[in-house]
């Protein structure tokens, strides 16, 4: 489904974020990418979301080359990927409902569809009662659950979670991991980056380990090893 072929990102001679990285993520797979800060995890995610373009190499999403997408096709491509970030990235002056609805509005869905789907998805992440609250009125765990609801509302092909538990306590972190596992079990591909050993061990699926911009290990047994 997603294929990185010798992808490099070079900012300058002494600043190489990714160095000829190659790997494939299959449909419905749950892949965890681990590594220390600066290992290249976030750069990899940014390139998949087209926030950055590779210096060399090719990124294929299904059959098309991501970096060759025309500007006007980029939003449509991004709607096929749900994103969850460490700092939640919720829109502060929109309510929980509006934050989730925004992704549907951006995809051109009707008001009737939004009115039906948003409460349903918020129920799935157990936030039905906070539907009219603003982000600043929520705890960290709740904010992350809103972000997950927003990420899955358009039924994307892939959910990318970039350090989603980084700002959460262990209990909330475990809840978020459980939700991501549930999303994966329903058929959505999940790519998770983290450096939390407990999280990796709790998932028990494929783990790609990165160091200094390279993939140094790709294990299917799901254990954290750095």
């Amino acid at each position: 489904m997603i294929h990185f072929d010798k992808v490099s990102k070079i900012y300058s001679d002494d600043s190489i974020a990714l160095d000829e990285v190659s790997f494939t993520v299959n449909s419905q797979e749950f892949v965890t990418i681990v590594g220390h800060s600066g290992a290249g995890k976030s750069t990899l995610i940014k390139m998949l979301l087209l926030e950055e373009k590779p210096s060399h190499g090719t990124i294929l999403f299904e059959k098309f080359d991501v970096s060759r997408l025309r500007r006007r096709d980029i939003p449509k491509y991004r709607r096929r990927i749900g994103t969850v970030f460490q700092d939640f990235k919720l829109i502060p002056n929109k309510t929980v409902f509006e934050n989730v609805a925004f992704a549907m509005e951006a995809a051109g869905r009707t008001d009737e569809e939004i009115a039906a789907d948003v409460p349903h998805v918020l129920s799935l992440v157990d936030l039905r009662k906070k539907i009219w609250n603003f982000p600043h009125e929520l705890s960290g765990g709740e904010k992350q659950r809103v972000a997950i609801a927003r990420a899955i509302i358009n039924q994307p092909d892939v959910v990318i979670a970039d350090e989603p538990t980084g700002n959460l306590d262990p209990i909330n972190a475990r809840e978020i991991v459980e939700i991501l596992k549930r999303i994966n079990s329903l058929g959505t591909t999940v790519i998770l980056t983290t450096h939390n050993k407990d999280v990796v061990d709790a998932i028990g699926k494929r783990v790609i380990t990165m160091e200094k911009g390279k993939i140094i290990r790709d294990n299917k047994d799901g254990k954290y090893a750095l």
Binding site: P75, R78, K89, F102, A103, A106
Partner: peptide
């Protein structure tokens, strides 16, 4: 600006 960055990430078009 951060809000705009989030909007772009969830797939909103520039016009939207």
């Amino acid at each position: 600006r951060d809000e705009i960055a989030v909007m772009r990430l969830v797939g909103a078009s520039n016009g939207f």
